[in-house]
């Protein structure tokens, strides 16, 4: 396996159109699965008030934060309007043999 790829979870750990939390090396991430079984990863905390995005709600490719309804496109990290004003950092993801990996910088 190439350097930097971290096993995050099994594909079945994330429901369709849902998100789970993944902690690694003192950092927290959010792993997303779309309705058509594509996987994405971002930083795990909302850029607005550091709430775990894994408690939020996935609609298509939007994650909505559970605390203040801040929205991000998790495929690009783009903040979609107040109170989310700062973009999310995204990470490359790959799936191999039922395992989701994300590549850290």
């Amino acid at each position: 396996m190439s350097a930097g790829w971290i096993p995050a979870c099994k594909t079945g750990d994330v429901g369709a159109e849902d998100v789970v939390r993944f902690d690694h090396g003192g950092r927290t991430f959010a792993i997303y699965r779309t309705a058509d079984d594509k996987y994405y990863a971002t930083d795990g905390l909302c850029t607005h008030e550091k709430v775990h995005l894994a408690h939020g709600f996935v609609m298509d490719t939007i994650i909505e934060c559970a605390k203040h309804n801040g929205r991000f496109d998790f495929t690009t990290g783009e903040a979609k309007g107040a109170p989310a004003c700062i973009h999310l950092k995204t990470y490359p993801v790959k799936v191999e043999a039922g395992q989701v990996f994300l590549q850290l910088d």
Partner: peptide
């Protein structure tokens, strides 16, 4: 609209 959106955000925090 915008001022109160932020006010209400704080109310929820």
């Amino acid at each position: 609209a915008t001022a109160w959106r932020w006010s209400h955000t704080r109310h929820h925090t």
